[in-house]
């Protein structure tokens, strides 16, 4: 575990805490994409199947449980909480799951390091995570009135990905046999997805303006 990895995980954790606090404090999930949250739930479930088979560390197990629990909490609130569910932008959050899930599934069946159920699902989760933010970015562009917390949530998620790239560089330089090409390429794609958002986020912050994305 290096500093970049720890900071990356903490940023990821913080992003989820920001989202939980925002929804809980304002009793509103306006601007939050349920599709993205559900894609993350699929990502975590497929990737963390090894919770039952492969113990890595207490840290690893605790973080996995937190990511699963918090994501399912958000989904539960958005779907079933009697106050919060009313605030969900159902009509704007129209990105289709299958456009992301099917290509990622096909790709994971073709490009994987071992053709087993666990390994294919793990690889699928890596590919799906790279694009899971897209419904959220599309919703953000549509709602056009982004509250600070939603903007911060996405900024923190993007930062976590950037820190993971630094973690990989560090590991590549310090661990002799450390190589994971599929993860690296997906991770770089995932980070590129955020670049446009980062540009507008930083610009609005510098100019002290409310964040808005051009249509």
């Amino acid at each position: 575990m290096n500093l970049f990895r720890l900071l990356g995980d903490m940023t990821h954790l913080l992003s989820i805490i920001v989202l939980l606090l925002k929804i809980n404090a304002t009793r509103s999930c306006r601007g939050v994409s349920l599709k993205t949250q559900e894609l993350y739930a699929i990502v975590f479930v497929c990737r963390y199947l090894d919770l039952f088979t492969n113990f890595i560390s207490l840290y690893n197990t605790v973080m996995k449980v937190i990511f699963l629990g918090s994501t399912f909490t958000i989904i539960y609130w958005m779907r079933f909480h009697k106050v919060i569910r009313v605030t969900y932008d159902r009509d704007q959050d129209t990105f289709r799951y299958q456009f992301l899930i099917i290509p990622c599934l096909l790709l994971s069946l073709i490009l994987n390091s071992e053709f087993t159920v666990m390994e294919v699902l793990w690889t699928f989760s890596i590919y799906l995570e790279a694009v899971a933010i897209l419904p959220q970015l599309v919703l953000l562009q549509r709602t056009n009135n982004i509250d600070n917390l939603t903007g911060n949530y996405i900024f923190l998620l993007g930062s976590y990905r950037a820190l993971y790239i630094l973690n990989w560089i560090y590991r590549f330089l310090t661990e002799p046999n450390y190589r994971q090409y599929l993860v690296w390429i997906s991770g770089i794609v995932q980070t590129i997805v955020y670049i446009d958002f980062f540009y507008y986020y930083i610009r609005s912050w510098k100019n002290n303006e409310k964040l808005s994305l051009p249509a």
């Binding site: 690893n60 973080m63 190589r179 994971q180 993860v183």
Partner: peptide
């Protein structure tokens, strides 16, 4: 074995 190493990441 290479890929298994990577599984310590979240």
């Amino acid at each position: 074995a290479e890929e298994a190493e990577a599984k310590d990441e979240l």
